[in-house]
Design a protein around this nucleic acid. Sequence first.
DNA 1: GGGATCGATTGACTTTTGTCAGCCTCAGTG
DNA 2: CACTGAGGCTGACAAAAGTCAATCGATCCC
Lengths: 322, 322
Amino acid sequence: MAIRATDQIIHKAAWLYYTHGLRQDEVAKQLGISRASVAMYLRKARDTGIVTISTSTQLFSQDVLAREVEDAFGLDTVWVVSPERDGPDAAAEVPVVAASVFLELVERGQRIGVAWGRTVYSMADVMPFADLQDVTVVQLCGNLGAPYSYRPDQCTMEIARRLNAKGLNFYAPLVLSSERLARELRDEPVIREQLASVADCDLALYSIGTVDEDSHVVKCGAMSPSEVHALRDNGAAGVVAGQMIDRHGTLLDCDYNRRIISADLNSIRAIRRRMVVIQEDSKLEPLLAALAGGLCSHLVITAEMARRLLARAAKPSVRASA
Amino acid sequence: MAIRATDQIIHKAAWLYYTHGLRQDEVAKQLGISRASVAMYLRKARDTGIVTISTSTQLFSQDVLAREVEDAFGLDTVWVVSPERDGPDAAAEVPVVAASVFLELVERGQRIGVAWGRTVYSMADVMPFADLQDVTVVQLCGNLGAPYSYRPDQCTMEIARRLNAKGLNFYAPLVLSSERLARELRDEPVIREQLASVADCDLALYSIGTVDEDSHVVKCGAMSPSEVHALRDNGAAGVVAGQMIDRHGTLLDCDYNRRIISADLNSIRAIRRRMVVIQEDSKLEPLLAALAGGLCSHLVITAEMARRLLARAAKPSVRASA
DNA sequence: GGGATCGATTGACTTTTGTCAGCCTCAGTG
DNA sequence: CACTGAGGCTGACAAAAGTCAATCGATCCC
């Protein structure tokens, strides 16, 4: 097809502007038309694909995935860890990336809430040392004997130590044997104050647990495998700071949750930056639950998890601009 | 490190600005930085190929002259650069057009052969940045000290760098002092392999040299003015990848050609897309020779050269359709 | 520990670009 | 031949982007 005269001038304007980098007034002068027309032609050139502007997809594939996840779930920032050729697998790299991301998010004078779990423990292990005076690291939930390298309180302290921050531990068990005891303990001033202060945190850090026999809560002895199965049948989709959430990310109404000493989910939601770190690609459902419940604003995941999330994105819409 | 924080923010700024169409101040607000920084990041994104802006070269291929040349010489596609009033002259514009055309022809996973010469050097200088992973740029012929801005190997590397592709250099001289030495060098496994791999290229890029005292081969010191004259008297009509061809586009049987380390003309003919770029209108005879020898399938020339070619078209027949 | 240095970042200012009401041209019509 | 209406073009203004000197902060080296 022969080029149409009107297309011809659009092409010329686009060429001079984008390829040669002339200004619109220079283009206008050269084509003998007004600058306003040039602006119009350039818009048309972009709209019709004569000029294409694209963000790189190969070199920054993990960044592209990250942006897409942000858009799909309305998150603040997402970091995607891609497997490196000849390197450790992506899952193993997640805590390393998460630790440096975490450091970048922390600022002077802030209060940071951390839960505990295998992923957070791994992060503590690789957390770089930094000098963040006036920072307070508080534990988000009660303690338990843990089958890992640190006890929960040690984990908090280790992170605080590496940041040269103040560590504030939670001197209560995560789970108690009766609802009554849990309620009474939550009413103790020292505990109540700590729980109330959670909403004042500037940043929270946690992972999301699964609801099966391999779950962290089971391994720590907070719950038996059969209890977990029962809860799962009752709609438990994930574990956040020791508490069971359903697939909408709301607190499950169950006996177990009533026996827990941990930060209230609404307090957690009130924290501006809620950083969730997920290593295992099998945690798709728990993560979706947490996302649905608004429990996450910053997310560190593997590329594989990013793809799975996108495949399940409720509405792949573009985030509305302000 | 897997993720560089500075690249991350540049990519995110580019994503929000170019993909989402936010204004710079909106991007700045969302990233918590100043608008000036956003402007800087966006510049960096454009400069490094995180964002690519490409303009269609239709303007140059949808031209009556281009069609006529295609038909007259049975070429795949021809791009014709017309002189613009107040603009750079057509010859100066040729490398710019050629660089854009070249980018449009390259696809993921391909192997590209490039020769060197003043025109190819000019193209490297104006080659836009792009993100073409899995592309390999190989040098088609040996090296020489060059009187231009790049050395031959630097030229290949510069093109590879801008395309974010892998550059594969040719570590041998273009011309040797004896036929024996050239033959032995060609038999070296490392050289032999590279020469053999030329036929596997998906795209080749070169210009055609003249056979006179101003020739590229003379300026690079590959040959003395008197040698050139002698070769011309013996039927040399042009230079392709350092080699002398006669007016039928076949390799000239001469001592010089036997002392050369360069891609075999038959290997070059085996490449599906052979892109020839000609700036100087004086290169009519060399170009006709290359066309006669089937050494060209895609051609970028000036309007003046197009007219000269048409005046000399052997058979002004209609190109056979598929 | 303090001072020097270098690069990144920003606020303030300038230049460039986007927009749109109104104007101008031209083809079609009575 | 004057009238009409549509479409494209422009001038002038508003909005956005580019630029740069000053500043901030991190790092390195005595």
